[in-house]
Design a protein around this nucleic acid. Structure first.
Length: 159
DNA sequence: GCCAACGTTGGC
DNA sequence: GCCAACGTTGGC
């Protein structure tokens, strides 16, 4: 069964529009250097999982669009690239430390769903996004939270 | 720019 | 294996 996720991105670095503008509307979600998130990618994220694309450190922050996992985790190539910010000299090709999935844009939300709106919505009070100290750049979302966010975003989640 | 919260690193 | 120091995230 497909899972639901939220991925964070600073739009000044890579926005939902950038994903829409990417070749085949896809991009490799590389540069993740957190073990919890790596384990999500390794153990749980599968092709077809649905993703809320969240703009962080932004004015306003919030969910801009929806995407899907278009390829399962592979070794993140940036960990082996000396010129990359993600270069990890301790990671070996025979035992890669870091993984990356591929994301494909599905559609922009007709209505941007701001962080303030999420915080103000009772049914979303348990979202990891709004928990104190919670900073994971990929986090699981429940089917109920998915439905509510899409509703706020102007999409009938039953399609 | 501040700062809380948390993850990671490295000395011992 | 402990834990202090440091780095990062991200809202405000």
């Amino acid at each position: 069964m497909a899972r639901y996720w939220l991925v964070k991105s600073e739009p000044s670095t890579f926005s939902f529009q950038d994903l829409l503008d990417s070749p085949r509307k896809r991009t490799r979600w590389e540069g993740i250097r957190n073990y919890t998130v790596r384990n999500f990618m390794r153990d749980q994220m599968a092709v077809g999982d649905e993703v809320l694309f969240y703009h962080s450190s932004s004015e306003p922050s919030g969910v801009a669009g929806i995407a899907r996992v278009s390829a399962a985790a592979i070794p993140d190539p940036t960990q082996f690239d000396r010129r990359s910010e993600g270069y990890d000299p301790k990671s070996k090709r025979e035992a890669p430390a870091w993984l990356a999935v591929e994301l494909e844009a599905v559609r922009a939300l007709p209505r941007f769903v701001s962080l303030a709106e999420i915080k103000g919505h009772r049914a979303l009070s348990k979202m990891l996004l709004v928990q104190r100290g919670q900073r994971l750049s990929i986090q699981p979302v429940t089917s109920e939270e998915w439905r509510v966010v899409l509703g706020l975003g102007g999409i009938d989640p039953r399609k």
